[in-house]
């Protein structure tokens, strides 16, 4: 059975909590990703997505150039280990209604990130459809 280590993005681009949002946005562009883990002492303390940046700046009329990752990140970190199976990872995504999950190693350091899209290109269509449906349903509600 496939594990997340086989399809995850290894060593993803990460930032610190005091990184400015312009810097974080540039990282998203340079790495073509929509989620950046936020680290403290090498361990993930949150995640920041393009939606986090926009929701907490544009929607609230704030200037994103004045804020840091800590101001907009989501602090509730959901993670799996490299030997987690794809099926288990799908369940984690459905349970938490998220499209991306951090992968942490034994020392607690972030060693990868796995997204719904990663599963979509490798898993059977049935599994992909179920995850998309469950995550999207909660989003709609």
């Amino acid at each position: 059975m496939k594990t997340v280590s086989e399809i995850m993005t290894k060593d993803p681009a990460c930032c610190t909590a005091d990184a400015g949002l312009q810097e974080v946005a540039k990282m998203m562009v340079e790495n073509d990703c929509g989620c950046i883990p936020v680290l403290k002492d090498g361990e993930p303390v949150g995640t920041i997505t393009d939606r986090d940046i926009c929701c907490r700046t544009v929607a609230e009329g704030k200037n994103p150039l004045d804020l840091t990752a800590a101001d907009v990140m989501t602090s509730n970190v959901v993670s799996v280990t490299p030997d987690t199976t794809i099926d288990e990872c799908c369940k984690v995504m459905e349970e938490h209604q998220i499209r991306r999950v951090l992968v942490v190693d034994d020392s607690g350091a972030c060693c990868g990130i796995i997204a719904q899209a990663d599963i979509a290109v490798t898993a059977p269509a049935k599994d992909v459809g179920e995850v998309v449906q469950e995550v999207s349903r909660a989003t709609a509600n």
Binding site: A25, M28, V29, T49, I53, C54, C55, T57, V58, L65
Partner: peptide, 18 residues
């Protein structure tokens, strides 16, 4: 227009979207 395009075209370039 998406969250990503705003980050990429505006914030990443040092502009205030307001």
């Amino acid at each position: 227009l998406t969250d990503r395009s705003i980050c990429e075209q505006v914030i990443g370039r040092g502009r205030n979207p307001r």
